[in-house]
Design a protein around this nucleic acid. Structure first.
Lengths: 218, 218
DNA sequence: TGAAGACTTGACCAATCGGTCAAGATGAGA
DNA sequence: TCTCATCTTGACCGATTGGTCAAGTCTTCA
C-alpha cells in the first residue's frame, strides 16, 4: 500500500497555494483591472510573500491568463444549458437563469471578463475569434430555425443573444451601481429572484413566447 | 466696438487646449482605465508636452474627474428623453433609441463610465447616490403608474430599467466583442439600425406593449 | 513700447512596481 | 541520517510614471 501523504505533502501544498493565489488574483484583478492590480496586493491577499507568488506564477501576465481561462470555462459551462432542450422556451429560460446565477455566484469572474473586453481583449482575443464565435454562430442558427418553425417571433437572433449577455452580466459588472440604487445594500435573495423572473419574462414575451399558451404571436 | 480677438487669443487658446486634452483623455481612459492610462500618453495624443497638460489639469485625478462629469451630463441629456411623452410606448422607444445612439456616438464615454462602476465608482459615488438615485426612483414611480393604469404589463420596473441600461450600453462597452463576432468589422449603419429596432421591439413586446394595438396584454 | 502676468517646455525627482537573487528552510527518498 | 530537489523569503534593482521646477516665450494692456 502506498504511504499516505501528510495533508501538507509537496503536491497538495502546491495545489493549495496555487488555489489561494488564483482566488486572490481573481478578486484583485476584478476590482482594479490588470494594470491597477499589483502582485504585492495579490500576494498579501493570498497570505504569502510576493517573491513566493512569483515562484508559482513567473509573471503577472501568466497569472492573469490563468484567471481568465478559468473564467471562460465557467462561461462555457453555462453556455451548454442552452442546449438542454430544443424548445425555445425551455432553452432560453435555462440559459438566462444559468447566466444570472453565474453573475450572482461569480461576480468577480464576470468583472475580469468585462475589463478584458473593455481593454480590447489583449489576452483572450483568440478565444473570442474561435470558441466564442463558433458557439454564437451555431446558436444563431438554432434560433433562426425556431423562427422558421414559427416557434418564436422573427427577431434578430444576434441582438437577442447580446441582450441576454448584457442583461445577465450587468448584475455582476454593475453590481456596485445596483447596490447603490438599493440603499447601499446587496440584493436580497428575493430581490434577485424577482430580477431573474422579470428578465426571463420580458425576454420570452419579447420574442413572442407565452408560457401556458403555445407557439409564437405575430 | 470691442477689438476683434485673434483666433488664438488667450482665452480661446485655453479653451481649445482644454478641449484637446479632455478629448485625448476620454479616449485614453476608455482604452486603458484610470490606472492604465498615463498622463504622458494623454499629452502625446493631445499633441502637447506632459508638463503643459499638468499646467491645465494639476493632477491626473482632476482630469479624470472632469472627463467623468462630462460623460454624466451626456447620460442625463438622454435620460430626459424618457419624459418626452407620458405614453409608455413613446417614452420607452425614444429613451432606448437615445441610449443606443449615445453608445454609437460616444462609445468611449460609456467605457469610462463602465470602468468607473467596475472599480466601485471611486470618483462618481456621490452622483450615483444623489442624481442617479433620484432619477431612477422617479422613473420607477412613472412606470408603476403606467402599470396601474393598465398601459403595460406588470413587470418589475427596476429590472426593466437595468435591462435597458445593460443592453444599450453593451453596444459601447462590449463593442470589441461585437466587432470580433462580426468578422472583425464595425457594425454597419444597417446592422446598427436592426439592433435598435430589435431591442425596442423585444422590450416593448416584453412589457406587453404592441404598437398598432393599444394598451397592454395580460 | 515695456512691464506683468499667462503660458510652454525640457529636465528632473521621488515613489511605486514587476521581477530577480541568493541564502536558508523543509520534506522525500535512499 | 544524509542528500538533493523543492519551496520560502527579505533584500534589492531597473523601469515607469505622476508631478515639479526653473528658465524661457508670448499676449495683453496701460
Amino acid at each position: 500500500m502506498k504511504p499516505l501523504q501528510k495533508p501538507t505533502s509537496r503536491t497538495a501544498a502546491r495545489a493549495e497555494n496555487e488555489r489561494l493565489i488564483l482566488e486572490a488574483a481573481e478578486a484583485v484583478f476584478a476590482e482594479h483591472g490588470f494594470k491597477g492590480a499589483t502582485t504585492g496586493q495579490i500576494a498579501d491577499r493570498a497570505g504569502i510573500p510576493k517573491a513566493n507568488l512569483h515562484y508559482y506564477f513567473p509573471t503577472k501576465e501568466s497569472l492573469y491568463r490563468q484567471v481568465v481561462e478559468n473564467i471562460f470555462q465557467i462561461w462555457l459551462d453555462a453556455a451548454n444549458t442552452f442546449d438542454d432542450c430544443d424548445d425555445p422556451e425551455v432553452a432560453l429560460t435555462s440559459y438566462i437563469n444559468a447566466k444570472m446565477d453565474i453573475s450572482r455566484r461569480h461576480p468577480m469572474g464576470s468583472k475580469v471578463w468585462a475589463n478584458e473586453i473593455l481593454h480590447k481583449a489583449p489576452v483572450i482575443q483568440d478565444y473570442l475569434e474561435t470558441t466564442l464565435d463558433e458557439w454564437t454562430e451555431s446558436r444563431i442558427a438554432v434560433i433562426e430555425r425556431w423562427i422558421r418553425e414559427g416557434r418564436m417571433a422573427p427577431v434578430d437572433p444576434r441582438t437577442l443573444l447580446y441582450m441576454i449577455w448584457a442583461t445577465t452580466q450587468h448584475y455582476a459588472d454593475f453590481n456596485h451601481q445596483i447596490e447603490t440604487l438599493n440603499a447601499g445594500k446587496p440584493l436580497s435573495d428575493e430581490q434577485f429572484e424577482t430580477a431573474k423572473k422579470t428578465v426571463v419574462g420580458i425576454i420570452l414575451a419579447g420574442v413572442g413566447i407565452h408560457p401556458g399558451g403555445k407557439g409564437a404571436g405575430a
